[in-house]
């Protein structure tokens, strides 16, 4: 190797600000990904306000509220785990991340029961009872399954992301000085929360 010279602005340097900026840019695309679905929701709800209202009675408000509380709490724990890591308390940070993952699993379990109840009532596209519904109610359920399904997928991805951070902290690749990965997992998790903040009133709280 005959080049000892290294540029100060090398792309191979570790740059916490760059990685944070990259994560934010990615979150913008995620926002617009769900944004597209919200546009579709807006159009169909304004076309069929009454059917959306009727269809929403099939959802359990209290299960939705409980899930909202779970996600908000997990958002706090992941934020606190970053604070803990920055302050050098690795153990607390890991424990808080485990709590976040437990919350993610809890959220998914409740979602599983909610979806399961819809299946039991024949409220899934293709089922006989579903096909007999008026157009507006069917559109509500199309959107419900698509949007909560995609959101659920993001919960899973977010959980896996946090698992990576936990192993990173244990292995020592994520440290109080180099916590970008943990910060980015946190940002991603907050986005999952942010989407749910809108999904919850749009599907459960129609009145």
């Amino acid at each position: 190797m005959n080049h000892t010279f290294v540029l100060p602005n090398s792309g191979h340097n570790f740059d916490a600000k760059a990685s944070k900026m990259g994560m934010w840019l990615f979150l913008y695309t995620e926002l617009l990904l769900f944004g597209g679905l919200f546009l579709v929701y807006m159009v169909y709800r304004s076309m069929y306000p009454d059917e959306f209202l009727l269809a929403s009675f099939n959802l359990n408000v209290w299960m939705g509220t409980f899930n909202t509380v779970i996600l908000l709490t997990s958002s706090m724990t992941i934020a606190m785990s970053i604070t803990a890591l920055q302050k050098g308390n690795k153990k607390l940070s890991i424990n808080l991340m485990w709590i976040t993952i437990a919350a993610a699993i809890g959220f998914l379990v409740i979602k599983y029961f909610e979806w399961g109840a819809k299946f039991d009532h024949g409220l899934f596209p293709g089922m006989d009872h579903f096909n007999a519904l008026p157009t507006g109610e069917r559109l509500y359920f199309y959107l419900y399954f698509f949007m909560t399904g995609l959101h659920g997928l993001h919960v899973i991805i977010g959980g896996i992301f946090i698992l990576f951070v936990i192993s990173g902290v244990k292995k020592g690749t994520v440290t109080p000085e180099r916590y970008s990965l943990s910060e980015n997992a946190g940002l991603y998790w907050h986005l999952v929360d942010l989407i749910w903040i809108y999904l919850f009133p749009l599907f459960y709280l129609i009145h």
Binding site: V6, L7, N9, S10, G11, H12, D15, A18, S19, G22
Partner: peptide, 12 residues
């Protein structure tokens, strides 16, 4: 990267 005078993109 060449035009900006660096050696790679931010996330190779």
């Amino acid at each position: 990267p060449l035009l900006l005078g660096t050696d790679d993109v931010a996330f190779p």
